[in-house]
Measured scan of single mutants.
Amino acid sequence: MALNTPQITPTKKITVRAIGEELPRGDYQRCPQCDMLFSLPEINSHQSAYCPRCQAKIRDGRDWSLTRLAAMAFTMLLLMPFAWGEPLLHIWLLGIRIDANVMQGIWQMTKQGDAITGSMVFFCVIGAPLILVTSIAYLWFGNRLGMNLRPVLLMLERLKEWVMLDIYLVGIGVASIKVQDYAHIQAGVGLFSFVALVILTTVTLSHLNVEELWERFYPQRPATRRDEKLRVCLGCHFTGYPDQRGRCPRCHIPLRLRRRHSLQKCWAALLASIVLLLPANLLPISIIYLNGGRQEDTILSGIMSLASSNIAVAGIVFIASILVPFTKVIVMFTLLLSIHFKCQQGLRTRILLLRMVTWIGRWSMLDLFVISLTMSLINRDQILAFTMGPAAFYFGAAVILTILAVEWLDSRLLWDAHESGNARFDD
C-alpha cells in the first residue's frame, strides 16, 4: 500500500549564491595573561575582544583620537594649579581661619623630617597626573615632529594605576569627618577644581587605549598563520617573532617567553612588605597634641575612634588600611606557593584573586592621604596640633611594595603550573 505524501511548494523562490571570495581570516594573537594562541577576527570600533580561555580583555573598544586626548590633557593642565594650590577646605580653629590644600599637606610631611613619605604622596597625587598630561601632550606634538614615541607609550600603561586623584578625593571626605570634632569646616574653591580634575582624569584614563596608539604610530604586520613560536610582548602586546637582537619589532624591548626574574622580584617585594606591615600596624601612625597632652593612634585605634562619629567612614578606612593590605599579602603568598608547588586545582579562583588584588591594591594609600591633609588643617603649635607617627613611612612603603609585587608577577606562570593543553579552566 503506497502512502500519498503531499508536496510542499515554497511560496518564495530560494536563491543560492556561491561564495565568490575567501572568507576573511583572523590574525593570530597570544593572550598576555595566559599565553593562549588564538585567531582574533577583525574588530570594529566600539567592540571589545576577550581571550577565549581566561576571559582577559585583549582589545578595548573604547578609543579616543589623539586630538581629543590632547584637549583633555590641556584642560587638566589648566585645572591643576587651582586643584593643588587653592584651598580645598576652610576650618575655623580657636577663632582663626585655616586653609588646607594639597601642596601644603605634602610640605608639612616633608617639613617634619619625613621627606620619603611626603614624596610618596607627591608622586601619586601630583607627579603621576602631571606625567600623564605631559605624556599625552608629548605624543600629540611628537607625532607631528617625527619624534620617538616608544618610551612614552611604554610608560603610559604602567602609569595608570599610580594616578590616585580619586583616592585622594575620598581622603578629603575622611579628613573632614575627623577634623569636624575640633573645628567648623567649609569647602574651599580649590575643592571644585579638584573634583573637576578627578572627573576629567577618570574619563581620560578610561578612554586612553595605549594598544590602539601603538597600532597608529607603529603598525606591524600581524601573524596570519598559526605558529607556536609566536611570542607576545608584555610592553606593547604585539604578537610576532623577535628581531635579530631578540627584541620586539614594535617597542624594541627584549621579547622573552616569560617575564625575567618574575618570581624572585615578586618574592622579594612580598617578604619586604610583610616585614614592614608589622611596625606599620604596631607603631603610632598619627599623633595629636591637645592642650599640651599627647595622644597617639595606631591604624586600628584611629579607626575605632573614627567609628564613634561615623561608622560608615570608619568601615571604608578599615577596608583600605587593614583589610586590603593583608588580603593582598595572603593572596600573593598563596599564588606564589601554588606556582612553586605546581598546583593544578582552583586555577579559576587564583586568576580571579590576582585580578582582584590588581584592582584594589592602590586604595591602601588612602590613610597616607588623610594624614597629609589633616596635617595641613590642624597645626596650632602646642594648643592643638596633628602630626604623623613613625608607622606612616612603614605603611606607605608596604603598600608600594605590594603594588610592585602584583605588577611583577607574570600571570602566565600560573598556567605553566597548571596542566598543559587546557582550553578551559575551572575549579
Rank of each mutant, 00 (worst) to 15 (best):
C266H: 02
L335K: 09
G315S: 13
I285K: 00
I177S: 10
W64S: 14
L335A: 11
V210D: 12
T202F: 15
R362F: 02
S206I: 09
W84G: 10
D181A: 03
N44W: 08
G315M: 07
V232N: 11
L208C: 13
E215F: 08
S39T: 12
W214I: 14
I274K: 11
L278M: 12
M36L: 07
L156A: 06
R144H: 10
A314C: 09
M164R: 06
A83Y: 04
D410S: 00
K229N: 06
R68V: 04
V203G: 14
M375A: 10
I351V: 12
E296K: 09
G302K: 00
E407A: 05
L159F: 02
T239E: 00
P52S: 11
S309I: 01
F395C: 01
D427C: 12
Y28C: 14
F194P: 01
A187W: 13
S273F: 01
L384C: 03
L93E: 01
W162N: 01
D166M: 14
P242I: 11
L263S: 07
R362L: 02
E215A: 10
N291A: 14
L263V: 06
L409W: 02
G61E: 10
A183H: 10
T374F: 03
T9V: 13
F82Y: 15
Y28P: 15
Q29E: 11
L263P: 03
V16G: 10
T334S: 11
K342D: 11
R53A: 10
N291W: 15
I167S: 04
A320M: 13
G190E: 02
F369P: 00
A312I: 12
T117E: 04
L213N: 13
M80A: 10
F122A: 05
L66A: 14
F238C: 05
G240E: 05
L353N: 10
G173P: 02
G240K: 05
R256V: 08
Q186W: 10
L270I: 15
H46T: 12
M164H: 06
V317E: 01
T387A: 05
K178W: 00
Q7L: 12
L290G: 01
P151Y: 02
G302H: 01
L156G: 07
L3Y: 11
Q180L: 13
H184W: 13
Q112I: 06
T201N: 06
K57Y: 09
A2Y: 13
F217D: 03
I400D: 03
N310Q: 12
I316A: 10
Q47A: 12
R260G: 06
M109Y: 04
G346P: 14
M1R: 00
F192K: 14
L282F: 08
R380S: 01
L89S: 06
T15R: 11
R216T: 09
S273C: 12
G421E: 08
G293K: 12
A18G: 09
N44E: 09
K328N: 00
R68Y: 10
L139Y: 01
A385F: 03
R260D: 04
